[in-house]
Design a protein around this nucleic acid. Structure first.
Length: 262
DNA sequence: ATGTCGATCCACGATCGA
């Protein structure tokens, strides 16, 4: 059995329902994990997605901020939702497919502008969130699992447009990269995107503030697909839908895809 | 420091978050 999965920070699922449908119609992933839905669960436009075959969903939502959802053509079973760092935010939801694979969908806190928790509470929350993710996967080793989402960290030098310039910018600071690495190690997670595309600059996010995102190309790889070692060899076909950054009323993130043959 | 988006409501402009 083979299935294709995608992750996309959509920055308002209601405003961008047309381009979610465009992606579903054109690319047809079996599973689409969304972050920053910015919507209560009961206001997610389910009918439009169901009309394209996405009749299953698990989601966590709240008004205005955060929010994560897993849309699927395949049956899903809810597999928990954790409030890491006790922020009261909808930032995680998990689902299990009938083939036994568990999917964790995360929206890690962005962390504010200053990489110092003594002056920036949001940075502390981000570090706490990552530490609790680490402890969660360390306490109960995940198996047959996939972890996706906007992790708000670009870990590698070639995950950012300028490594030296980014060393003090939240999302690429050494302390964050180390925390993400510890979280990854705790679950023995394999970075499927970089397993498939090991070399070269690779981004999934470009700021709205850049004049010409495509020309300037000052991107970061904030959106990730990881898998546990028991299924990591089944992962392949990773790709980033860069063109989506230029679609009508775009998100600042683009979808990242991978396929698993199980 | 700047820039641009989206959601909210003491709601049509200011504020917060990214």
């Amino acid at each position: 059995m083979s299935f294709t999965l995608a992750t996309w920070n959509i920055n308002s699922v209601r405003l961008r329902e047309p381009i979610v449908c465009k992606l579903l119609a054109e690319e047809g992933p079996d599973v689409l994990c969304l972050q920053e839905c910015k919507s209560p669960v009961d206001k997610i436009p389910l009918e439009q997605f169901a009309a394209l075959g996405y009749t299953h969903m698990v989601a966590e939502g709240q008004k205005g901020y955060n929010g994560v959802a897993i849309l699927s053509k395949l049956p899903l079973e809810a597999a928990g939702a954790h409030d890491f760092a006790q922020l009261g935010h909808a930032r995680h939801v998990a689902a299990k497919l009938s083939n036994g694979v568990t999917i964790h969908n995360f929206y890690v806190p962005a962390g504010g502008d200053v990489a110092d928790r003594t002056v920036n509470e949001k940075f502390g929350q981000k570090m706490d969130y990552l530490a609790q993710m680490r402890d969660f996967f360390h306490a109960d080793a995940p198996q047959k699992s996939i972890l996706v989402g906007d992790l708000n960290i670009a870990p590698r030098t070639d995950d950012v447009w300028d490594h030296k310039k980014m060393l003090k910018v939240v999302s690429h600071t050494p302390v964050e990269v180390e925390a993400l690495s510890q979280t990854q190690d705790a679950g023995k997670w394999v970075d499927i995107t970089r397993q498939d595309i090991p070399d070269g600059l690779l981004y999934s996010w470009w700021s709205y503030r850049a004049k010409d995102w495509d020309l300037a190309d000052k991107g970061r790889r904030l959106d990730h697909i990881w898998a546990t070692p028991d299924i990591s060899n089944a992962g392949h076909g990773s790709r980033v839908i860069r063109a989506a950054r230029g679609w009508e009323k775009p998100s600042d993130h683009v979808p990242v895809f991978a396929t698993f043959d199980l």
